[in-house]
Amino acid sequence: MTDEGPEALCDAIRDRLVGALALATGSRPVAEELAQEALVRAWQRWSQVSRMDSPEAWTFRVAFNLAGSWRRRAAAERRAHRRRGPEAVRHDDPDAAEVESVRRAVAGLPDRQRAVVVARFYLGHDVAGTAALLGCAEGTVKAATAHALANLRRTGLETDPIEEVTAP
């Protein structure tokens, strides 16, 4: 795939990239914007990125970092709004309530846990693959998974406890 250039990478991962970022940010439009930005960066650095073991993993990692930056900026904006006055009115989201609650629950996780949940349970990576994707140790992935699932359950999200054991 990487021999074919950045276009092929873009076509191969954009759907999953946007989906993962939608979970990471809680917003599909934001996800599309960040996904494009991640792909732009991969494109601009293609001479280096194409030589990496996994350009896809690099792009996802950049995307997760962008999502983290976006979340921090959004938090700063919310703080600024609070300083100025009442909380800004949120736009209605056409998504169903369940979808919205899942997005909110996942987006509410700490950065590492959120990335692990998305990588493992949405993108379908195993522990080793998730560790490679996120650039951390497998033990970190396992611990983050356990904490993330516990946190998701605390938000009312139904997660099967078996997933903690059987998830690849």
Partner: peptide, 28 residues
């Protein structure tokens, strides 16, 4: 597919992605 994976897949959305490689190329 585990229940969590199903939920995440639904929450990620399946709308058509509004950009393609040409869009990214133009942005670059």
């Amino acid at each position: 597919m585990t229940p969590l994976t199903e939920m995440l897949t639904r929450a990620a959305g399946d709308d058509a992605v509004g950009f393609d490689a040409r869009t990214v190329r133009r942005r670059v």
